Computed example of a mutant assay.
Amino acid sequence: MTTTGQLVAFCGVVGLGAMSPGPDFAVVVRRSALRGRAEGMAAATGVATGVFLWAVAAAAGVAALVATVPVVLTSIRYAGAAYLAYLGVRALLAAVRPAVAGPVAEPGSAGGAFRDGLLCNALNPKAAVFFLALLPQFLPAHPGAADTLTLSLLAVGITLLWFCTVANLVAVFRRLFARSRVRRTLDGLSGAALLALGARLALVRP
């Protein structure tokens, strides 16, 4: 049985991992700034769902298989890089698109925001390596389903809390982001950041 001390330590490590800048953060911030709180939180939920999938996969040994089979890991890495590049190009195109009246800069939906968050996390092999290295340290020698589920749900809860907080804080300033010049600047910066993250994912092995 996982002890209380181990649970607290696990929560701390997962929290630090969630707060580190990366594609998940960029997607949640952009959705929140340009489309509002609802889509920002939908993207956050997508990221948290990806975390749950990787945590369960790590506990079940699937992540270990992914990490030890080069072709699988490489395929996920390139797919993730391609998706980040797609999001980056889309943001850069929005930056040069003619201004649209009102706060809505481009079409969007909560489903699309959820998809972006989920795929950014699920197609990031660094998440697999992170949970593969982390979970065994906090699971007992012969973990039961309850131990695995507890840690997985804690990881989801911490991730969701952090990114929902980010979404709500960014959404407060949405009126500022609705201004054409600010919106274009945010699109350009987020697009460049996503492209850079995609290139880093493709070129740097986890």
Rank of each mutant, 00 (worst) to 15 (best):
L169G: 06
G111K: 00
H142M: 14
P136M: 04
S109E: 01
V69H: 10
L93H: 08
T74D: 12
F173S: 15
P70N: 14
A59Y: 01
T148L: 15
A141D: 04
L34Y: 01
A94V: 11
A105M: 11
L189H: 04
M1I: 07
D24W: 06
R174I: 09
T2V: 13
V66N: 05
P23D: 10
A58I: 03
L87T: 12
N168S: 12
P125C: 05
N124S: 13
Q6H: 11
L119R: 01
L149E: 03
A101F: 13
F131H: 05
R31C: 10
G80R: 03
L16T: 11
A60Q: 12
P140I: 01
L135P: 02
R205Q: 08
G188I: 01
S75A: 09
F177Q: 02
V51S: 04
T185I: 14
A122K: 02
H142Q: 12
A127W: 06
T49G: 13
S190Y: 08
Q137P: 10
A192Y: 02
L92I: 12
A122R: 03
A133R: 07
V13K: 03
E39Y: 02
G50Q: 03
G108T: 05
A94I: 11
V71G: 08
R174L: 06
L7K: 08
A48V: 15
P136S: 05
A79V: 10
V27F: 07
C11I: 12
A128Y: 02
F10D: 01
Q6T: 06
L34D: 02
V170D: 00
L186A: 11
M41R: 08
A99N: 07
L154G: 10
T68N: 10
G12L: 04
A145R: 05
L93I: 11
A128T: 08
N124M: 09
R35P: 04
P206V: 08
V28N: 04
P143A: 03
A196C: 09
L7M: 08
V69G: 13
A193Q: 02
A60I: 15
F25H: 15
R200A: 09
A58M: 03
L154H: 09
A99M: 10
A193G: 05
V71H: 15
A99Q: 14
F173R: 15
F163L: 08
S32A: 15
A133E: 05
T2R: 00
L149R: 04
G112R: 01
V56H: 02
L203Q: 14
L87Q: 07
V129M: 05
G80M: 09
P125E: 05
